[in-house]
Nucleic acid binder design. Structure first.
Lengths: 142, 142
DNA sequence: CTAAAGCCTAGTAACGCAATAGGAAATATA
DNA sequence: TATATTTCCTATTGCGTTACTAGGCTTTAG
């Protein structure tokens, strides 16, 4: 599995925040309820996003989370790479095995490199605003 | 990680067998030594490939493994799907979560579907013969 | 008959994932 | 200033998967 729940949840949360931008800061509790995700688990994920300056979190009454940039300035790729750690399809491309003793002669390495590029290029081409439903972001429907 | 060692090893072994087709049946021992993979672990992998009729295995003295088809008739995709079980990038597309209660309204589902198609289409477009080094398959070098 | 090979069923150690627990610190409001 | 609300931080746990190992059985050529 390339993307685990952590990455999937993170993406859904980011879309949720993009859709509710107009409401100002959104408390975790609200997001968790709307998305059907455990509050405690969400905490971990949001903490990661805050530490990376993708979100701003504020404590106390009236606190909550907001996006740091407009939705069109986030790519799905960066959100997933952050929360997943890496989007490499195989360990060979991911630090550990990097410099595998056989990489010079490995007949399959190019396949992995191409696949890696394919995946990252696609996900870097999708921005958050493209995932926001048309009628969200407004408090009324025509 | 989309592809684990099982899938990576399987692909390397298939390429190895394609490169040494001319030598007839190749015993596991030889492949394991050439590829630097544990013999016992390789057994599992080869068993999977034999059961799926991708390889033919023959026991006894002089036994070993051979491809069942010419290399250009194997795609990387089918080899990996077989050994990995699935190439789905997220659980949502992989049986378990299929029919997730939120799939109707999930704003991210299309991203996963597109990604899934991208991955599978690419890997189904690469055939084994494309991974065989030019000078292999012959027992001499010009 | 024997050596060389594949086939089969388990077992296990280590790791990562998903989730939980408990509390400390900050903030707005009464 | 007291209190409710909310984020922030550090650990821990249960569980499934991965990567590999063990041991024995069966087939085949010479």
């Amino acid at each position: 599995m390339l993307v685990s729940t952590k990455g999937r949840y993170a993406l859904r949360v980011m879309v949720d925040l993009a859709e509710h931008q107009a409401a100002g800061r959104i408390p975790l509790k609200e997001i968790a309820a709307r998305q059907g995700i455990s509050e405690k688990y969400l905490e971990n994920i949001l903490a990661t996003l805050v530490r990376a300056n993708m979100l701003s979190g504020m404590r106390g009454k009236g606190g909550g989370y907001v996006l740091m940039r407009p939705p069109e300035q986030y790519t799905v790729g960066e959100i997933l790479r952050l929360t997943e750690g890496s989007l490499a399809p195989v360990a060979c491309l991911d630090g550990d095995c990097k410099g595998c003793s056989r990489s010079d002669e490995c007949p399959t390495l190019d396949v992995w490199k191409n696949l890696d590029k394919l995946i990252n290029d696609y996900l870097d081409g999708v921005t958050l605003d493209q995932l926001v439903a048309p009628n969200h972001g407004y408090d009324y429907v025509i």
